[in-house]
Amino acid sequence: GYDPNALYCICRQPHNNRFMICCDRCEEWFHGDCVGISEARGRLLERNGEDYICPNCTI
């Protein structure tokens, strides 16, 4: 089920109804503003069928 207190992202904070994006490599969720991806950019990636790779996986 959905846990509203689950911690995500590099900031280890809950979802808090903020835009989030999922890394296509590790499948962890990240707040867009923490990883520099706007909601519009996230939608563009999705539309173009491009993967989002998080900072942890791009090292």
Rank of each mutant, 00 (worst) to 15 (best):
G1N: 13
G1F: 12
Y2Q: 14
Y2T: 15
Y2I: 15
Y2C: 11
Y2K: 15
D3P: 14
D3C: 08
P4S: 13
P4C: 12
P4Y: 04
N5G: 04
N5T: 03
N5H: 02
N5E: 05
A6L: 03
A6Y: 01
L7Y: 10
L7Q: 11
Y8G: 08
Y8L: 12
Y8D: 14
C9N: 00
C9P: 00
C9I: 01
C9V: 02
I10A: 07
C11L: 00
C11F: 01
C11M: 01
R12G: 15
R12L: 07
R12T: 07
R12F: 05
Q13V: 08
Q13G: 04
Q13W: 03
Q13A: 14
Q13S: 06
Q13K: 08
P14S: 11
P14T: 11
P14M: 10
P14H: 09
H15F: 02
H15G: 11
H15Q: 06
H15D: 12
H15T: 13
N16C: 04
N16D: 08
N17H: 10
N17D: 06
N17M: 09
N17P: 05
N17S: 07
R18P: 03
R18E: 09
R18T: 10
R18G: 13
R18V: 11
R18W: 05
R18C: 08
F19M: 04
F19T: 04
M20C: 04
M20N: 12
M20Q: 07
I21R: 06
C22R: 13
C22S: 11
C22W: 13
C23L: 00
C23S: 02
C23K: 03
C23N: 00
D24W: 04
D24G: 14
D24V: 15
D24I: 06
D24R: 14
R25C: 05
R25H: 09
R25W: 04
C26N: 00
E27Q: 08
E27Y: 10
E27W: 07
E27I: 05
E27A: 06
E28P: 01
W29N: 15
W29V: 15
F30V: 03
F30H: 10
H31K: 00
H31S: 01
H31C: 03
H31M: 01
G32R: 11
G32C: 09
G32A: 12
D33Q: 06
D33P: 06
C34G: 01
C34T: 01
C34M: 00
C34R: 01
V35Y: 01
V35I: 14
V35H: 04
V35A: 08
G36A: 06
G36F: 04
G36R: 08
G36Y: 08
I37H: 07
I37D: 02
I37W: 12
I37N: 07
S38G: 11
S38R: 06
S38W: 07
E39A: 04
E39T: 04
R41K: 10
R41C: 12
R41V: 12
G42M: 13
G42A: 14
G42K: 15
G42W: 15
G42Y: 12
G42R: 15
G42T: 11
G42I: 15
R43K: 12
R43G: 13
R43A: 14
R43D: 03
R43H: 14
L44R: 13
L44M: 11
L44G: 13
L44Q: 12
L45T: 07
L45Y: 08
L45R: 10
E46N: 10
E46S: 08
R47Q: 03
G49D: 03
G49H: 13
G49P: 10
G49F: 04
E50L: 05
E50Y: 02
E50D: 10
E50F: 09
D51L: 03
D51V: 02
Y52M: 02
I53S: 11
C54Y: 00
C54Q: 03
C54M: 00
P55S: 12
P55D: 01
P55G: 02
N56C: 10
N56T: 10
N56V: 06
N56I: 04
C57E: 02
C57Q: 00
T58H: 12
T58P: 10
T58M: 07
T58W: 01
I59W: 02
I59G: 04
